[in-house]
Nucleic acid binder design. Structure first.
Length: 258
DNA sequence: ATGCCGAACTTCGTTCGA
């Protein structure tokens, strides 16, 4: 079972490339972020024609998440992250697919920091930690996949230049501490479990020639509950997708479970 | 210190992302 996460940076503008990737990569589950489409303008028909069932939580202009399942219908278990009824951002959807609970996460970026956007990021992470604790306690196979907007460490394995990112919300001690507290509930970072060392990036900025000089970092993560981690076979990043015309600034990131 | 890019709306500039 292959589970992928892909921040598409606009599903409508990315649709031809996205459908190509779906055909080539054949994920059983695909968690999407930044679909940047209102519910009614999501390209459901094209995705179903590609052989996928789908649930999505849209928003006009920005944000928006989805879960696709090849040859089946995802059973939605959660829409929006619990804990703040006033939160209007579409950043979380969760569904069961073939007995696995899958969350599609678009964690707030938090820039500029300090400021209200950073405060929102940290508050959102606290809600995620609380919801993840409930999921974890269920002892099911769970995969929390998405754009976490956290670079886990300053190592070159995770970021092309720690000094260049030192004042960014993605590397702040508070962001990292919250991410670590989530991991320390007992979740396994799928990419690092399979690739303990070596530079693995999932995002390269459009600006300043970042892709050409491999100035990327790792912010798209798949966290596995123990029952899912026991089944972990492989993990990787479809880096080639980032080099294509009209590419997202993120590359698809995936795990396979046996 | 800022813009460097790319996309969509607020639409021939502005806002957002990371």
């Amino acid at each position: 079972m292959k589970i992928a996460t892909f921040n598409v940076n606009g599903i409508r503008s990315r649709l031809p490339r996205f459908l190509e990737w779906l055909e080539e990569s054949q994920p059983d589950v695909a968690c999407l972020q930044e679909i940047k489409a209102a519910d009614e303008s999501f390209p459901e028909a094209e995705i179903r024609a590609a052989g996928y069932g789908v649930v999505w939580h849209g928003q006009k202009g920005f944000n928006g998440v989805a879960i696709l399942a090849r040859g089946s219908e995802p059973i939605e278990t959660q829409r929006g992250l619990p804990g703040d009824p006033d939160d209007s951002h579409s950043r979380y959807i969760e569904a069961e697919v073939n007995g696995v609970i899958v969350g599609s996460i678009y964690l707030p970026n938090g820039n500029p920091q300090p400021g209200p956007k950073f405060d929102y990021k940290i508050a959102w992470m606290e809600r995620l930690i609380a919801h993840a604790a409930n999921l974890f306690a269920g002892e099911r196979a769970v995969v929390l996949a998405g754009d976490y907007n956290v670079i886990p460490t300053d190592a070159r394995d995770d970021v092309f230049s720690a000094p260049a990112m030192a004042s960014d919300a993605l590397t702040q001690p508070q962001s990292r501490a919250a991410f670590r507290r989530l991991l320390h509930q007992g979740w396994t970072d799928g990419i690092r479990a399979r690739h303990p060392s070596g530079a693995i990036y999932t995002f390269w900025d459009y600006q300043a020639g970042c892709w050409a000089r491999d100035a990327g970092f790792r912010i798209d993560h798949l966290l596995l509950s123990p029952a899912a981690a026991d089944r972990l076979v492989d993990a990787g990043v479809d880096k080639a997708a980032r080099g294509k015309e009209k590419a997202s600034d993120h590359a698809p990131t995936w795990v396979t479970l046996g």
